[in-house]
């Protein structure tokens, strides 16, 4: 389903922050357009099969989110090859496609369209989405008046309604109150059992151990280790407690 072959992503950061044309021209004239290279990912190679659940662990800044964004197509790798088959639904930061001025109902359609659902699909599943979110009474209220928990619940309900080929999850199993968390956890399990390939980033090792078939340990943008869930988790836990 997903194959990465020596994927690298290099940020070229200007040494001086340049945001205006004047600054740019001045820097250019002085020959002072210098860049720092920063490898957010280097030489990352691995592949994930259909229906597999791959956990990704690593300390902050190890490149976990960058890797997810590369696979989701948001960032373009600067080197290497990436192949992803099928439909990818990224659950990166939920609710980012919402428009505050629109009502919950309108946002379901807007957000669904952004995630690539068809109109027919949304109409068919509309009631299901609403029911799952439990926001029936607030459907015609602008999202601006929602609490942040409500926004998250609605967003999760929309994002999890599909059966994508690849689901990309970045720390979002902790959405809403305890009851909703349990509901969303069950929903994730359902998706996994139906053969969706899942990439899961989490700092909760317990969760990774429970859910994942294999685990990838990223360290400084490189693959430190990939393999059996318990082994990699043990090694990772040992390394991070030893620091």
């Amino acid at each position: 389903m997903i194959t990465l072959n020596r994927v690298g992503l290099c940020y070229r950061m200007p040494k001086d922050k340049i945001q205006s044309m004047k600054e740019y021209l001045v820097a250019l004239a002085r020959g002072r357009l210098r860049y720092n290279s920063f490898f957010a990912l280097s030489d990352v190679s691995f592949s994930v099969g259909r229906g597999e659940v791959l956990g990704i662990v690593g300390s902050n800044g190890a490149g976990k989110s960058t890797l997810l964004k590369v696979i989701a197509g948001i960032l373009t790798p600067t080197s290497g090859e990436l192949r992803v088959k099928g439909r990818v639904v990224p659950m990166l930061e939920l609710g980012s496609g919402f428009d505050d001025d629109l009502t919950g109902r309108e946002n379901i359609f807007l957000n669904g369209a952004i995630l690539g659902y068809s109109e027919q699909f949304l109409r068919e599943r509309f009631d299901e989405i609403v029911e799952f979110s439990g926001l029936y009474d607030f459907l015609d209220v602008p999202v601006r008046n929602y609490s942040s928990g409500m926004v998250m619940r609605l967003a999760f309900s929309i994002a999890s309604m599909v059966e994508p080929d690849v689901l990309i999850v970045d720390e979002i199993l902790a959405v809403g109150d305890a009851r909703f968390q349990e509901k969303s956890y069950t929903r994730m399990l359902e998706l996994m059992h139906r053969g969706t390939t899942v990439l899961l980033v989490s700092h909760d090792l317990g969760q990774i151990r429970r859910l994942c078939d294999r685990v990838l340990w990223l360290d400084g943008g490189r693959v430190r280790r990939i393999g059996d869930t318990q082994e990699v988790c043990d090694a990772y836990a040992k390394a991070s407690s030893g620091k």
Partner: peptide, 19 residues
């Protein structure tokens, strides 16, 4: 080895995004 990396969903046709 700089290949043009392939995007997921690489069919940016107008019809696909009409909705």
């Amino acid at each position: 080895m700089t290949h043009a990396p392939q995007r997921p969903q690489d069919r940016p046709s107008l019809a696909r995004y009409r909705f």
